[in-house]
């Protein structure tokens, strides 16, 4: 256990953790919303994220983006990519819901069946990008990672001592927090948001009150998809690649984050994500990176054992005063 190393670089490691955690938080949004409303672990959500990353690549390629573009152009391209990725991700989420989850919902299938179906959908999406699209379109699809051009170059924003903050990290963290705040406002203040909370609390009563359950469910998937698309944009900005299996591990960590913060709780997704990211980086700094996943899983098990409702506890469906 290398504590001196950790303490010396604490600021740097913390920011790294927050950045990593921001991406977890945005993906966790999708998990927490869907679980809060449907009691379903949407395994395919990690693939919605992956599709978003490929969309960003697609937009960059279509626009001809490369690393030398000027500042304003870079911002424009990035925003465009984010928008398109959010739309495509949301679309993918809706397709999965319609094709796989709705028929099962109509049959009132038990959770195990829905979980297995979700795993199957995840596998199908992974393989479409890992193989099927390669057969039909060739490169860049396939089993290797694809480079995404760095439109926004990494620059130091400010330096304190031996710690320097990069612009990408700052953007990622601020974007995640911003999205969370926006979403929180939406769910708590708007009419549609009220509908979401109503269905999460009691679907039948909500429909008696005039809330269209299916529309709310679609909305929830859309919001989750948008968040995942945005997370994909931020991920590509930081790591510059897309790969067919990039979603899987991030999905599991994001679900852990959602549980950590309190499933069904939007603020919990943020808190859980950031906390998980920081814990992972700290453990990697203390020991080494090959224990990173164990850290996440141990956190998951411990939280579920001692505080299954999560840190922030309350769920989406709990009535507020």
């Amino acid at each position: 256990m290398d504590f001196t190393n950790l303490i010396e670089g604490l600021a740097g490691f913390t920011v790294d953790g927050l950045t990593k955690g921001s991406i977890y938080a945005l993906v966790a949004l999708g998990y927490t919303l869907v679980y809060g409303v449907l009691r379903l672990i949407n395994f395919a959500h990690s693939e919605v994220f992956m599709v978003g990353a490929w969309t960003v690549l697609g937009v960059y390629t279509a626009v001809g983006a490369h690393s030398g573009v000027g500042v304003w152009l870079a911002i424009g391209i990035t925003l465009l990519a984010g928008l398109v990725a959010a739309l495509v991700s949301a679309g993918t989420a809706l397709v999965v819901e319609r094709v796989a989850y709705r028929p099962l919902r109509n049959k009132n299938a038990p959770p195990l069946i829905v979980l297995i179906t979700a795993i199957g959908c995840s596998l199908v999406l992974v393989e479409i990008f890992g193989h099927a699209l390669r057969v039909f379109f060739g490169a860049p699809f396939g089993r290797s990672a694809v480079n995404i051009p760095t439109v926004v170059p990494t620059r130091e924003v400010f330096t304190i001592g031996n710690f320097n903050m990069s612009n990408i990290d700052l953007i990622v963290i601020l974007a995640a927090v911003g999205m969370m705040v926006a979403l929180d406002l939406f769910v708590n203040k708007s009419r549609l948001g009220r509908g979401v909370r109503a269905v999460a609390q009691d679907p039948d009563t909500a429909s008696l009150m005039g809330v269209n359950k299916n529309n709310v469910i679609m909305l929830v998937f859309i919001i989750g998809g948008v968040a995942a698309g945005l997370a994909a944009l931020l991920h590509t900005m930081k790591y510059d690649f897309a790969k067919f299996d990039m979603g899987f591990l991030i999905g599991i960590k994001a679900f852990t984050a959602a549980v950590l913060g309190g499933i069904g709780n939007l603020r919990g997704a943020l808190v859980g994500g950031l906390l998980l990211g920081v814990c992972e980086v700290y453990s990697s700094a203390l020991i080494s990176s090959n224990w990173e996943d164990v850290t996440a899983f141990v956190i998951l098990v411990v939280v579920l054992m001692f505080r299954p409702t999560g840190i922030l506890g309350e769920s989406l469906g709990k009535a507020r005063a």
Partner: peptide
């Protein structure tokens, strides 16, 4: 040490720095 399929190397990079 890192592991297969790792994508985020911030901890290792931090240690190297």
């Amino acid at each position: 040490k890192t592991q297969e399929k790792q994508t985020d190397f911030s901890a290792v990079v931090g240690k190297i720095k």
